[in-house]
Every structure is written in C-alpha cells, then in structure tokens.
C-alpha cells in the first residue's frame, strides 16, 4: 500500500500543497483529478522523490519510501522526456537495464511492450521522428518496461488517440489485476470513472474527496430525483418542495430534503408513474460539486 500523508509544499510564498493525504491499495486503480494548478503533479513528483516536500511523508506498507523502493516504480512525468536521437527500441531497453534488468530480459520486455503499444514497426526509428502521440507511447513503454511494482503516471492518456487509449487502459487494468497499485492523474473524467476503483479529488492543494467511486456516487447521489409521469395533469407539482425542472413528462427535483415520499404520492395521484428514482451523478458532476 502506498500512503501519502499530509504533504505540504510551498514555492516561495505560493502554497502548492496544503496537507494532501490519500492511499492507494495493492490491486487498486486510483484516479487523481483536480483543476489545473491544483497540485497533482507536485504531489506525484514528491511521491517519486524528484521534489522534496516541506513536510509530510510518503510511505509504502508503513515504511518511508526509499530510493530502492522507487527504482521498482514505473513513472511517467508530466513533461515527457526522451532522448530524441536515440532509437525507440534501444531507448526502452536502456531504461529497462538502468532498472536492473539483464540485456536479454530488457530486450524481451521491450519487444513485448512495443508489440502491445503497436510500435513494433517503429522500433528502429529515432524517437524524434515519431509523432507526438507515438512518442507518448514510447514514454509509456519506458515507464512499464521493468514490470514495475507500483505505477505513477502523470496524465498518461493525454494526447493519445482512442485506439491507444484502449491499449493503455488494457495494460493498466492488467497490471492492476496482477496486484499493482496504479495511480494516475487525468482530466478525462469519463475515463477515470470507467477505469478507476478509487478517485481522489484535489483542489487548491487540499484533498476535497478521496474514496471508491461507488462510495462517492452514493454519498453525492441523494441530490437529484427524477420522476416521469405519463398523462399527468399540468401543474401537479405545484406546492411540492425543492427546486423543480420540468421537461415534458420528465420532472427533476433537487434539494428535496426528505419530501421524496410526498412527491411520490403526488405523482401517483397525477397519473401513471413510469419512473421514480434518484439519479446517480456522473464523476464530472461530483467533481464540479466538489471543487465549486
């Protein structure tokens, strides 16, 4: 388990992190979301040891993280960096070897990864000759080549086409299933919602939510009541509590405050109730609500 405990970081008199804490369990995919400048990259750089926190700690299974721990992590920094003049396959192998793989292991892992990321045809090209999206795939291969025990990826999906998004998602799910904690940041909330077990929302250097997706939705869920009544007499909602939005037969109630059963009775009286239930908010809605 990776624990981030009460991180604080200031740049001059600007506070970037003001007490960030969350945990990523083995076999859990954790989506790290937040507005631009909220502190995601800062948190991840501290986690990877390329930036020092002013205070706070990062632990693995209760012990503070060491260099040796981090060597076994797979890291994709926000600002992509590759040797432009080095060939794709050589470059991925080089990073495998730096992480302690033998030449043969690195060669095999590289070939497998390039295959999965549809880069086999470009293996002998210089990285600089690749399109941005393909360079991004090489960057992923570099993060994944040594079969990391933990994955820390800063916006890994940005700049990828839908096919590559699926390929990467597949790789991440596979790693997660193998028991690897996966932490990634993203602005693509639908993707986070689809892939992640847990989500952490950061706003202005503070965690405003951190929980499983189910839990977050359930907690935020009792806000929007959707009722559909066929052949209802107009004005049946008059006098009912909450904010009301009508659209044809469909009526949305917010801020119901416990008057849901009263609404149900009124609906039954008004006509044939076709739908009555709480709307599950999307992650986007939860996010908007949380950072507002």
């Amino acid at each position: 388990m990776i624990e981030i405990d009460d991180l604080h970081k200031r740049y001059g008199d600007k506070t970037a992190l003001a007490g960030v804490s969350f945990a990523v369990k083995p076999g859990e995919m954790f989506g790290f979301v937040g507005a631009n400048g909220a502190g995601k990259t800062t948190t991840m750089r501290i986690l990877m040891g390329v930036l020092a926190a002013d205070s706070g700690q990062v632990r693995r299974d209760g012990r503070p993280l060491t260099f040796e721990d981090r060597r076994k992590f797979g890291y994709m920094p926000e600002e992509r960096g590759l040797y432009q003049k080095m060939k794709v396959s050589e470059q991925v192998q080089y990073f495998g070897r730096l992480n302690g793989m033998s030449a043969a292991q690195a060669a095999k892992a590289t070939a497998d990864l390039l295959e999965r990321l549809s880069l086999t045809g470009r293996a002998g090209d210089e990285v600089g000759a690749l399109s941005l999206g393909n360079q991004q795939r090489v960057q992923l291969a570099v993060a994944l080549v040594h079969d990391p025990e933990v994955l820390v990826l800063d916006e890994p999906f940005s700049g990828l086409d839908p096919i590559a998004v699926d390929a990467l998602a597949e790789v991440l799910v596979e790693r997660r299933t193998a028991g690897v904690p996966v932490l990634f940041s993203s602005h693509q909330l639908d993707l986070v919602e689809r892939l992640c077990d847990s989500v952490g929302i950061i706003s202005a250097g503070r965690m405003v939510a951190s929980d499983t997706v189910e839990e977050l939705r359930a907690r935020e869920g009792r806000r929007l009541l959707k009722v559909v009544v066929r052949d209802a007499a107009p004005g049946w909602t008059a006098g009912l509590g909450g904010n009301i939005t009508e659209k044809g037969d469909e009526v949305l109630f917010t801020d119901v405050n416990g008057s849901d059963q009263e609404i149900l009775r009124a609906a039954t009286k008004a006509g044939t109730v076709e739908h009555f239930g709480w709307e599950r908010p999307t992650l986007t809605e939860i996010f908007r609500e949380a950072v507002a």
Partner: peptide
C-alpha cells in the same frame, strides 16, 4: 542540459543515483 531540459532526468534519477 539535454537531460535536464527534456526532464528525462526525472525518470533517470528514479532509477539511478
């Protein structure tokens, strides 16, 4: 400077000293 400017150093220094 190449390594620093391209930030490749961030990945390198999580692997080696």
């Amino acid at each position: 400077v190449e390594e620093k400017g391209s930030r490749i150093v961030e990945i390198l220094l999580t692997s080696i000293r």
